[in-house]
């Protein structure tokens, strides 16, 4: 199931999953991030890893997080993060 998720994932989501794996030092693999049905934090993405993810996403995609109350949820969901980057939210 995880392999199928990897194959079908769009390129941006795959890239974000790779960043999650990097930010969490492999605690959460890219495949696990892509297949996640629970918040990434429930898989083991700590607040330190979240900060690393934010920094990497900001630098790579030229966006800035404002850390409003709703934005934490974006960090817990690859789909939401993808929409945040493409401007869909």
């Amino acid at each position: 199931m995880e392999e199928a998720a990897v194959r079908e994932a769009p390129a941006l989501r795959e890239r974000l999953a790779a960043l999650v794996a990097w930010a969490s030092d492999g605690t959460v693999t890219a495949a696990e991030a892509l297949a996640a049905t629970v918040p990434l934090s429930a898989l083991g993405v700590t607040s330190l890893a979240q900060m690393r993810l934010i920094d990497a996403v900001e630098r790579e995609f030229g966006i800035e997080f404002d850390f409003s109350d709703g934005e934490v949820d974006v960090l817990n969901d690859l789909g939401a993060l993808e929409r945040r980057i493409t401007g869909a939210v």
Binding site: I54, F65, F67, E71, V72
Partner: peptide, 10 residues
Amino acid sequence: AKPAALRAYR
């Protein structure tokens, strides 16, 4: 606390 913590970390 969660977003407040991220704001603090930044």
